[in-house]
Write a protein that binds this DNA or RNA. Structure first.
Lengths: 207, 207
DNA sequence: GTCATCATGTAAGCCGTTACATGATTGC
DNA sequence: GCAATCATGTAACGGCTTACATGATGAC
């Protein structure tokens, strides 16, 4: 019932309203999801989240998406409003907004240790880390760090296997370097996190 | 019909006979497959490959798998032979051997540009690259290189997006470093490949 | 007026995991 | 003799992609 895509969609909607078509590009551009997620996943996910009460369809806000850094003319016109009873705005776009319930679920899902952190799950969460409290962020980072240390030991052991030919060995060594790079990143994030949390006891947000 | 797991299994069997249970650990240790592939995938895959005539079940060779670097006592005894008509050896292990047909399919699959190269697909192929001719290896590397350059441009563009918070940006920048590391690896492999192919015109194998 | 792109949705199917069912071998 | 590990297989289910079906909008 906990789907990674749900977290990603809710995370995007935390920032502002989106319609389905737009979500795909945002997954790539703002959350760093590598492969283009297909619409065959996105639309059913939105429908499910709506049924579940985590998001709701709203009147389409005038588009300011593509270019222009937002600051131009706000709200050019409410436009010939909704087509049917549901939230279909101009041009058939169906714009979704996260509900209060969705917000609560989102933060729980984001911090949840259940959905275990492979590379993709982790970098998705990290891209949304500004919605976590500092201590939850540190927890997330430390869990990831432990996983990576384990993986590093495995892959180093493999690369010392004497029976490997030069290509297989090269793959193993490269995998080790990749994990080391990840670890350096995590360690860097952790130290930043800890020096930022110096000041007394109130939580600070990113940027 | 072209399954990544098939390539991996055939690749392992190119080297020597294996039974299913063993294949799982070999995928990790020799081919660098990160997550443990479940038996629920492996056994059906072997059955499919057998039906297809790419592999065949043979009498179990006496185990020399776990420890001991092979050179001890060869063939300790044929043992109370096969249980039923099929290739069930001692202790119920079902040992598979690649057929001539399987060998042919394997090299085709390994070089095949159809199964497009994501990170995992590529490093699997590279771990098996000793079975490719030098020119096929170079082709594989160059295709991967082109993909990575594209990906690098994307991820760099994303990381310059001014609207990202510091966490999302950090994710993007780290992704870029990862791709750069991959590229450096590929370039290094390519230059090795090219300097190795200096000598006249006959193909050399790895190690 | 037509083509590319934007936009939403449904259905079939692939590929993999989890869970279940079963049993042999080895170490203690 | 009992537990841990080795060993093989099947069935259900889940999530994601592909392909299909449909239509609006904007550019030329």
């Amino acid at each position: 019932m906990i789907r990674v895509l749900d977290i990603a969609i809710l995370g995007l909607l935390m920032d502002r309203d989106h319609h389905g078509y737009e979500i795909r590009s945002q997954l790539r551009d703002r959350l760093g999801v590598s492969a283009n997620v297909s619409f065959g996943s996105i639309y059913p996910a939105l429908a499910r989240l709506e049924r579940h009460g985590s998001v709701e369809a709203v009147a389409a806000d005038v588009r300011l998406s593509s270019l222009s850094t937002g600051s131009l003319s706000g709200e050019r016109a409410a436009m010939r409003t909704l087509r049917s009873g549901t939230g279909l705005g101009r041009r058939g776009r169906k714009v979704y907004r996260i509900t209060e319930r969705g917000r609560q679920e989102f933060v729980e899902l984001l911090a949840n240790p259940a959905t275990l952190d492979d590379a993709k799950g982790f970098s998705l969460r990290m891209a949304l880390a500004k919605y976590l409290t500092p201590s939850l962020r540190v927890g997330l980072l430390e869990r990831r760090r432990a996983d990576l240390l384990e993986r590093l030991a495995e892959v180093r052991a493999s690369s010392h296997n004497a029976e490997l030919d030069s290509y297989a060995r090269s793959v193993m060594e490269h995998a080790a370097r990749g994990v080391e790079l990840d670890l350096a990143w995590i360690d860097n994030l952790l130290s930043t996190e800890r020096s930022d949390t110096n000041p007394p006891s109130f939580a600070r947000d990113a940027k």
